[in-house]
Design a protein around this nucleic acid. Structure first.
Lengths: 188, 188
DNA sequence: ACCTAAAAGCAAATTATTTGCTTTAGTGGG
DNA sequence: CCCACTAAAGCAAATAATTTGCTTTTAGGT
């Protein structure tokens, strides 16, 4: 639907958005997602259902909206001294978060809403690129060689995501480290 | 919900399933997916809405059910004489189908329904593995070296899927061929 | 302090979903 | 071949979600 991108902070819109988002997070953490409905969220947020319908259109859009926000990384990848260990650590954490129950649910919410105007999935992808770029930049500063960000997306991020989404088997920490090592090995 | 796996062919259940699936396919091809509702499908299929609700639970499950069936490959990968060209051709076709509007929609349907018992996404993944395995087997018969199927999933299928799902940019034919070539090069 | 536009509230109308009960169609036993 | 049994479908009433027209509120600009 028509989620306005530029909401004046502190205004009424911003307050409604905040309380609705909070209501969604609270409800998702306390009950099965199949039970979460817009009228419920509205009540919890102290808002009228029609407000939510008009702003977000449907439950999927709203869930996706909340999910994208929660998928935004809160910090830059940790500096552990070398590109390899930076990448390994970051990838392990990324894989863990995404493979967790809530992580998978958020990804699915984001993908399900897609076809929308705002390309929420693209936003998530951009977050990931930023993180990888930060690791690459640090490697550059240290004088280390580091593959192109797109290489990292294709051969580290993509396999992790694919296995989480499609496969029964999320990658183990060892597998993730192996993927990372291989990228920096020159073999990839 | 409770999609029974073993339906006696020719029975009433099978007929209902067939007509509902057909109704979904027809409606999806002739209108916007946001307009497709269960009562509509029921009417089109000549069936009562409650039948659909009881069998599939909700629209997402039904759409996913139809999508998995349409994502099942109808033939084994073509034999073009060498592992590399087999893999290139298959991957290009795979990428094309999945990146198309209907392809993307089907993938999203499958993923959205997930969390269900039947692991529809896993089924799709299994189809893909079978196809790759067939190429691998042929390569073996020819005496060619061929990477492990999991390698192909990680470094060819996964990047294709990731870019289709998350990125603005589905991979070009050239990129797909490059990924395939790299796998058989020994570099991957 | 007013005026305006955008967004929220309210409530009625519509539409989708759930559910209890009835009917029908296939299956297996005689 | 017919009868009983079971699983699934139909029907319709009850409930819940969604849409919509209209009114009210509120933040921002004059």
């Amino acid at each position: 639907m028509n989620i306005r991108e530029n909401i004046r902070p502190g205004g009424r819109s911003a307050r409604v958005q905040a309380s609705v988002h909070k209501a969604v997070r609270d409800l998702l953490s306390s009950m099965d997602r199949a039970e979460v409905t817009i009228p419920l969220i509205a009540t919890q947020a102290g808002v009228t259902p029609s407000t939510i319908y008009r702003r977000w259109g449907d439950l999927q859009e709203l869930l996706a909206d909340v999910a994208v926000e929660r998928l935004r990384p809160d910090a830059m990848p940790k500096d552990t001294g070398s590109a390899l260990s930076d990448l390994e650590l970051w990838a392990e954490q990324y894989a863990d978060e995404m493979a967790s129950g809530p992580g998978r649910a958020m990804i699915r919410d984001v993908l399900a809403s897609d076809g929308a105007e705002v390309r929420k999935a693209g936003k998530c992808c951009a977050y990931t690129r930023e993180q990888v770029q930060a690791i690459a930049d640090r490697a550059g500063e240290r004088g280390e060689t580091f593959p192109d960000v797109e290489e990292v997306i294709d051969h580290l991020v993509a396999p992790i995501m694919y296995r989480i989404l499609f496969d029964e088997t999320p990658p183990t920490a060892a597998q993730v480290r192996a993927l990372a090592a291989r990228l920096l090995d020159g073999r990839g």
